[in-house]
Design a protein around this nucleic acid. Structure first.
Lengths: 225, 225
DNA sequence: TAGCAGACTATACACGCGTATAACGTGCCG
DNA sequence: CGGCACGTTATACGCGTGTATAGTCTGCTA
């Protein structure tokens, strides 16, 4: 009945059910997942009871928001997250209507729940392919443990964003453009510099670590297949 | 009125007041800051009313927990966070009684509030000195923007930890040793490898970024509807 | 010994939450 | 036209929360 294609944030011609869901995504992104059913209802311009009527429970509404946000995020394939900051930021910056979805995802990642874990796993899987391609093209150095590196890169990049936002006092996650503005500061340069030149002057620490873990075979390094 | 009498020392164990505060730190670390006053009371083996009697309000209790945790954390100076993982992890691993404090701090950092911001700023300030020393000693390469780099390193390291914990389904933050065990996996090697060799094969992307930002005095990325 | 300060408890209160219930309006179909 | 399905609202219920109140117990001091 209703097309999946229109993404306009118009308040008018959407069916009340979709309006409630979008209002919930906005509310969750703006004030966190302890946003009240009544707050969401007010945002959507309906009564609180209607939410229960349409979704059954707040938890069910939350799940539907998760699904919708995941769908939107997957739709714009944020692949190079933390890989080529200029490029990925440019992508996210033009997300427009997806802004609240982006904030919603950050919120999920922050509160450590199951849906955040899914978002994160999704990014890691994406980044794995993307990194492999970048290695093959000669842009990125190979790693002795590609899986661990990609997990590290994604968790650090995304986790870093979260803490940068908190450091800058950004508490409202509903405005995607504003989030990006908060994040694209001196961070971009420092990130590129780190990725280009590394941090340590020589490999002595790395070598010592490898020797140490090789000696006691507690944590053997798994090689790339 | 009678505050000075009780607040003076933290080592006053066995007093119910200290027991409540420790129980609160444990409860907050274990289940988050929405832990109930009654849950904390049960943990401390006292009635709920006694908490109000001693601290006045839940918020005041929270503040006292913040102060106590900050005191403990500062006491063991986790300086090289994310710098030399083997060393810093070894430090944290032996924190013993400070385990809950470590988890409490992670919890604060995760939920994005003011006290988390303070913890973070504290780490950044510590890391700034530590990094400067490491650069001077020749262990770490200099950066063209030391402040931005240290901010990046700390936020990414700590934020990365948070997401690693969430990725591994670690929801209880009260057991410091268990947290460390969750974090010291393949991550250590990947981190050292990244810090040793970097990520990119050459500096072309960095150079392009520098040129671009030098050309336009402000970021040209802005797209909104 | 009397008395009182203060640690401590049991109970109660007000409030906000998610949700259930009943009624109302409106459009569709026989 | 009658009936009914359903979107929608207003109201209320039960519960858990933080906190206020009043009372009990205990140890110190005069």
């Amino acid at each position: 009945m209703y097309s999946l294609l229109y993404v306009r944030s118009a308040v008018d011609d959407l069916t009340a059910r979709a309006r409630i869901r979008d209002a919930a995504i906005n509310a969750f992104a703006a004030t966190g997942f302890d946003a009240t059913v009544r707050q969401i209802a007010a945002r959507a311009g309906v009564s609180a009871g209607l939410i229960t009527h349409h979704f059954g429970s707040k938890e069910a509404l939350r799940e539907e928001c998760d699904a919708e946000v995941l769908r939107q995020i997957l739709a714009l394939k944020v692949e190079g997250i933390g890989m080529a900051p200029g490029e990925s930021v440019a992508r996210i910056a033009q997300l427009g209507d997806y802004g609240p979805a982006f904030g919603y995802m950050l919120r999920s990642l922050r509160d450590g729940g199951e849906s955040g874990r899914i978002f994160l796993q999704n990014m890691i899987d994406d980044a794995r392919d993307y990194t492999a391609a970048a290695v093959k093209s000669g842009m990125v150095l190979p790693s002795r443990d590609e899986d661990a590196r990609v997990e590290l890169l994604v968790t650090q990049s995304v986790g870093g964003m979260l803490l940068q936002l908190s450091l800058r006092g950004q508490t409202d996650f509903s405005n995607g453009a504003e989030l990006i503005r908060s994040l694209t500061g001196s961070t971009s340069f420092a990130l590129l510099e780190l990725y280009t030149q590394g941090l340590l002057t020589d490999s002595s620490i790395l070598d010592a670590f490898v020797d140490q873990t090789a000696q006691s075979n507690h944590e053997p390094l798994k090689k790339q297949k």
